[in-house]
Design a protein around this nucleic acid. Structure first.
Length: 461
RNA sequence: GGCUCGGUGGCAGAGUGGUCAUGCAGCGGAUUGCAAAUCCGUCUACGCCGGUUCGAUUCCGACCCGAGCCUCCA
């Protein structure tokens, strides 16, 4: 409680002091995945960024209700189901599990709640009815549409005027819309398509509806933080605001937060561009900790250029932290108040993770160079800081020797070769000793001689 | 066209009106049988042009270049 948390608010385009409506119960809603495919590393960015925020808020306030939805009804899912000749729920069940596995491999905590759209159809129908009754929605050819002209501040979040929305329209506009910007709350389902009975016939919800309904039913009025990718600002979040404010009154959200994209060669990674890297594939070559650190190595509001070089560097960085930790493995840790550190201060300044990571380096340096008592403090701080990021929770040796099966030799064989090399060294047979070192290097095993004997770790390349 | 956001050293990436980011890589050294790890030292910066200022990478303006949203998207 020593630092003040400042967060950039998309709505005001400024950093603002974060002041929860109820400090005893902080509420955060983050847009989760549409589950019809494996997620890519760009989808993982909000999961990781808001995980750090979740941890930080818990540290500051204690109780945080973090909801991250699963969109399990959607046209893309229906299309995928038809393509694979399976049911929508078969697809969504499979990819919901895959999503949870992937983000958990990235060392993120499970949110407090993971509401499913299909389990909130009733709430969505109710919300639509309210909007109809208040004159914000109308029925047109079996679609229920939200009328953007019925709301005076429509477009405020993304700073665009309703009049301008025609200008850039690149998409054919349905004839039955009163205004081109009007969006679907409820749409009819054809036979064979999934749907639910409603006052407007058999159908399904529009995309934006679920977040408004679920945020309201789980988190209540005026939630503290709503997060998601920058590309959701318009139309998704704009439309959520329209629905929620017009139906329930209030502000809907006090702090809007948006992470920038993950890019490949300076271009946004997206399914439509076909330049995606799935988390699943990346995890075959890199540990989740590496991916997480990579995603945190750029400030969340700046585009992150994704590359192999970035991952290699992140891996090296983690290894250097663990190298330090291994040296002080025997030193006990103390309770430290992480809030007193520059590390914490950096996080409290709109989640400045790159600066926070530089403080991790500085703590590691103190582990390597400090007096015994300094080492002890630095180790305690480094571990506490790591845990606030959801990193550095491995045994140093397990990290340095383990991970992916990139070494083609068993630990037993390594140990016996080390033994043989020790004997050769004692006999001053350096030729044989170097031969063994070379042999192991070839297998990705790096030997390190020290006064306590020889130890090994996986080589980084 | 409208609305946003950027351009920092070989790379990644913070930040600031006036000595230092940080990491990786490089170079020199210490240490080592040789290495590794670690340590010490060290070189490359703030897109371009003006303005404000004692002083600007940092503020203001123009320009150039790039990205995002306006369509499903994290």
């Amino acid at each position: 409680m020593t630092s003040s948390l400042f967060l950039f608010n998309t709505s005001s385009r400024k950093k603002e002091l974060f002041t929860p409506k109820d400090p005893e119960r902080v509420t955060m809603y983050v847009c989760g995945p549409t589950v019809y495919n494996y997620i890519h590393i760009g989808n993982a960015r909000p999961a990781v960024v808001f995980d750090v925020l979740f941890r930080l808020l818990k540290r500051e306030y204690g109780t945080v209700i973090y909801a991250r939805n699963i969109t399990d009804v959607d046209d893309k899912i229906i299309a995928a189901a038809q393509e694979n000749d399976e049911s929508m729920s078969a697809i969504t069940t499979r990819f919901t599990k895959a999503y949870r596995d992937d983000v958990s491999a990235l060392k993120t905590l499970a949110p407090t709640l993971e509401p499913l759209a299909t389990e909130h159809i009733e709430e969505m129908i109710q919300l639509t009815e309210i909007l109809m009754n208040k004159g914000h929605a109308y029925l047109a050819e079996a679609n229920v549409l939200f009328s953007v002209q019925s709301m005076k501040d429509y477009g405020a979040l993304s700073n665009r005027a309703i009049e301008d929305m025609l200008a850039g329209a690149r998409v054919e506009i349905a004839q039955y819309k009163k205004h081109p910007g009007d969006f679907v709350l409820w749409k009819p389902s054809k036979s064979g398509e999934p749907g639910w009975d409603s006052p407007w016939g058999f159908g399904r919800p529009g995309w934006h509806l679920e977040c408004s309904a679920m945020a309201h039913s789980h988190l209540g009025q005026d939630i503290d933080i709503h997060g998601g990718g920058r590309d959701l600002i318009f139309p998704h979040h704009e439309n959520e605001i329209a629905q929620s404010c017009c139906a329930y009154g209030g502000n809907f959200v006090n702090h809007w937060m948006h992470n920038a994209t993950v890019d490949i060669d300076g271009e946004k990674m997206s399914k439509s561009l076909g330049n995606i890297r799935t988390v699943r594939d990346l995890l075959k070559n890199y540990r989740g900790d590496v991916l997480k650190l990579a995603l945190l190595s750029t400030h969340y509001r700046s585009p992150l250029n994704f590359s192999t070089a970035l991952l290699e560097q992140s891996e090296k960085t983690l290894t250097s932290f663990y190298n330090g930790l291994r040296e002080v493995d025997e030193i006990p840790i103390d309770e430290v108040n992480i809030a007193d550190t520059s590390f914490y201060e950096a996080l409290c300044d709109d989640l400045n993770t790159p600066l926070a990571i530089s403080e991790l380096h500085s703590m590691t340096k103190r582990i390597n160079t400090g007096s015994l008592s300094e080492k002890r403090i630095a180790k305690s701080q480094l571990l506490a800081a790591g845990s606030l990021l959801g990193l550095l929770d491995c045994e140093p040796n397990a990290w340095l020797q383990g991970g992916l099966d990139l070494i083609s030799i068993s630990p037993e064989e390594i140990d016996s070769l080390i033994l043989e090399r020790d004997k050769a060294k004692k006999a001053k047979n350096y030729a044989r000793a170097d031969e063994i070192r070379g042999l192991l290097t070839g297998k990705g095993v790096l030997l390190e001689d020290s006064s306590d004997g020889t130890r090994w770790r996986r080589s980084s390349d």
